[in-house]
Simulated assay, not measured.
Amino acid sequence: MAVNIYKELEKIDFNKKVGSLTDDGTLFLEHEWTIDEATNFLRNFPKRSELRWFYVLDKEKKLKGVISSHNLLLAKSSNKVRDIMDESPISIKAEDSLSHAIHTMNELELLSLPVIDHTGAFLGIFEMQATPEIGKKESLKKKKMIYGDIFQMIGLSVEKADSKGVFSSFSHRIPWLIGNSLAGFACAIIAGLYEHVLQKAIILATLIPLILTLSESVSMQAMTLSLAILKKKEIPWKNLFFRIGEEWKTTFLLSIAAACFVSLASYFFLGSRLPYLVVFATIILSMFIAATFAVLAPIIVHKLKLDPKIASGPIVLVFADIMTTFVYLYLASIWLL
Rank of each mutant, 00 (worst) to 15 (best):
K93A: 05
S91K: 14
L113H: 07
H100A: 13
A101S: 11
I102S: 05
H118L: 06
E107T: 12
E95G: 04
E107Y: 11
L98W: 00
S112R: 11
G120P: 15
D96E: 14
E95R: 00
S88R: 11
I90W: 05
A101V: 06
P114H: 09
S88L: 03
T119W: 01
M105R: 06
N106F: 09
A94W: 00
I90S: 08
E95F: 00
G120Q: 11
A101L: 06
S112F: 11
G120L: 10
S91N: 07
I116G: 08
L111I: 15
E109G: 10
A94P: 00
F122E: 09
D96T: 04
I102E: 04
S88I: 05
L98F: 05
S88K: 09
L110P: 06
S112W: 02
I92A: 01
E107R: 14
V115E: 02
T119P: 02
L108V: 12
M105S: 08
V115L: 05
L110A: 06
E109T: 10
V115K: 02
H103F: 05
H118A: 10
I90C: 06
L113G: 06
H103D: 15
L98E: 01
S112G: 09
E95A: 04
L108H: 15
I90G: 07
L113D: 07
F122R: 05
S97C: 05
H118E: 12
H103M: 02
H100K: 15
E109R: 15
I116V: 15
L110F: 13
V115P: 03
F122N: 07
V115Y: 01
D96V: 04
E95N: 09
